[in-house]
Design a protein around this nucleic acid. Sequence first.
RNA 1: GGGCAGUUGGCGCAGUGGUAGCGCGUCCGCCUCACACGCGGAAGGUCACAGGUUCGAACCCUGUACUGCCCACCA
Length: 902
Amino acid sequence: MLPKAYDPKEVEEKISKLWKDKHVFKAEIDETKKPYVIVIPPPNITGALHMGHGLNNTLQDTLIRFHRMNGECANWVPGTDHGGIATQNVIEKKLSKEQKLSRHDLGREKFVQTVWDWYKECGNAIYNQFEKMGWALDQSNIRFTMDEDRAKSVYASFSNLWNKKYIYRGKRMINWCVRCSTALSDIEVEHEQHAGKLWHLRYKMENGSDGVVIATTRPETIFADSAIAVNPKDERYKNLIGKKVRIPLIDRLIPIIADEAVEMEFGTGALKITPAHDPVDYEIGQRHSLETFIVINDKGKMINLPEKYLGMDRDLCRKETVKDLEAAGLLVKEEKYNNAVSTCYRCHSAIEPYLSEQWFVKMDELAKNALKAIEEEKVKFHPANWKGPLTNWLKNIQDWCISRQIWWGHRIPVWYCRHCSEKGLTFTTDKQGKEQLSKVSFEDGAKPIVSFEKPECPQCHGHDTIQDPDVLDTWFSSALWPMSVFGWPEQTKELKYYYPTSILVTGYEIIYLWVARMIMMGLEFQGEVPFKDVLLNGIVRDKTGKKMSKSLGNVVDPLDLTQKYGADAVRFSLLSQSVLGKDIPYGEESIIGARNFCNKIYNASRFIQMNSEGIEGPLELPAKPKELCDRWIISRYNNAIKQASDEIKKYNMAAAADILYHFLWGDFCDWYIELAKQRFDGEDRKEVISILINILYNTLKALHPFMPFITEEIAMSLKKYIKDHKEFLIEESYPAYNPALSDEQAQTQMALLQGVTTQIRTIRAQFNVPPGLKIKVLLNTADRNDLAVIAKYQNYITSMAKVETLEIGSDIAKPKQSATGLHGTTTVYIPLEGLIDFDKEKARLDKELAVIENGIRNRERMLGNENFVKNAPKEQVEKAKNELEQMLLRAQQIKTAKEDLN
RNA sequence: GGGCAGUUGGCGCAGUGGUAGCGCGUCCGCCUCACACGCGGAAGGUCACAGGUUCGAACCCUGUACUGCCCACCA
């Protein structure tokens, strides 16, 4: 005997192995078919997958399985991302924790090797997780953003953009993360509101008079001030422009200048200008040719200032400066102020604006093309409301800083001749005593040689060339992903067949970082958008709506949940909550319902099979069943299939899951199996079993994209009954809507029988009729059709409502001591001598009456309104009329029942 | 400062121009020979607020409030 409860663990392991051994997910080009391609958003190799990956990939898997079952040549391309800064940080932490070493202790080469070793470990864990979740990825061909083919793509794209002069090197104010010690692009910076302070400081005049008071949030940068700026229109300061003031504490003289950028309303209307440490000040400095003083270095330590502060951390220096300013009587005011602090998206430490030479990509042309493609709907967004923000971003795009001063990533493919670039190259000795190129300056004469491999110098033909120390932004390789996975720049047959891909499924949080750039690169290099649709999934949050994070301790691990409840349950719970672009508050409770559903499917299948003993397959769905409930369930099944497919096509996975869930649990289990029970030993035994098994098998197919394991497992055990089955469900055709199976009449008639049954059950429950008690039910209806249906299928009612005797007629009077129920035109009377509580019955009837009378009022008002009768669609008017008629009748029946309370 | 979402029964969420559904929870009754991860039944909502369009609005429009998110160089 099979166990009562479904145990997913064993089954999922078994099925997973089977899929793997039989290469079920192997993707092969089939020119006779339409390709359906999804390239996975490659997870970073920073650790195990989280719930966000769970949702994102499950959505992709559902689409892939669905489309493959619909006859398309489906290919879901797997891979991982090297994850630049994020991964480097993980490894640095690991090194420090396990061996108390920094990356500098290891040196560049060894460190990079360590990360490669980590990739083997972490990558495998991820690929293993793909399998555990049942994701139909072709794992025989895994890509990694750092592998050789992808490196070639990166080089091809770099040199191409270099030749077009889109890539250039420039000295700019960039975002510098002091902790990660690297430059970041503008979109890698997050803005947080911090409770900070605004200090008002006095800068005295050259002659020692009161001078000017400025407001600043960064008093530690006064040492790098080059000027005080005021708005030229500001009357308060007009006569001071051109004069000089002394910087507090160091007494260096700086001029008062006028610049439009100064807001008169903010603070005191006077702004200290620190060109080296603030982006706005930098621009002002440029406009006025101000001198640049640097007082904070790349580590966030203070330099070039009085010895007292030398080497201090910037935060400490701020405190000390304020203290000293106060002592000097130059601190005028200190007020609380919420300022926007820029932080690193990887480590969340405060960003330091930093002046340095970096590599950039010129974006205007690229953005223009992307904009055009998006506006022409070459790429469509689902939901569409992200189109606006994206186009807006593209319109205001800034050049992209692509160089990172870290070690893990694609090294910039630019080399320098030590001889010819001498003055532009700065070397330092690292901890291993090795000489390293630490700084490159084009301003000082470094001459770039763009090359994939170590080149000879084209000028002096020497071989003493050395590669740029920086690596590329990890998003640079990500931007090429939809092409690089197919071997671009080689025009491979894969690239030709699979590109552009069908759809990108990703989170809305990386639209600018990733989606936009893929579109730009795809257009630039392949002349075509990389995907036609973008499906944006939300963020999986904790059950209170907070973002899951390690520091909050609210992270749920998909692997844990999978162990506990099964991958199908995790998948189904995510899918049933996934509405386009919306975040999902995810609690463990939500998975339990899905687990229960798995159990329901399993038990229903087990029951059907238990009752199929001795029946030989194959069994086919009878073409024209006579029995009402047979016609009904087939029709309901057919409807469910149509609705579910339609919803999937619209990317409404939650709606599709819901439809199938309710069809299987409600219609199939609660009604059809229950009705079928009494026929297992009857003459139409084989027909009932055929319908049960075929409907079940087809419903499993329909559910397969959502919960692949359990459906596969059960389907396998049903194969002996199924004609023309495939070995695996993914190879089957997705069930199709068949108009011939629709049976409106059967649905109407069943609805009547179900309604009457429910009325009887309700009365039983309301009056606590003991379950074993034999009851008699009288059914009265004036409707001839209804009467005929009830008469013909009274066994449905007697069995489903557990009724001993049933009396049916069109002029049955209410018996004494009986309860009354109503469904449509049918009145249900159940004599309940000794059980009936008249007060309770009256209350029930009153309540029912109130609802109906309300309905009557509504409809009378509608029909009394000539505009409604005139303007509303005919069927609406008809409907209202019919409803009114029925309601009046029912009201009358309830009133009669109330009068007859005895 | 600009933009985008959301506001529906205790909780989490669907929903559509014709009078509101699901899951969980709650309450009542059931170990009915597939399933107590179950079966049957019930209670519970003036769909944030104010206007407007319409014969009719939770759904469309305008505004307000609150919540969340994204973008932005007021130090």
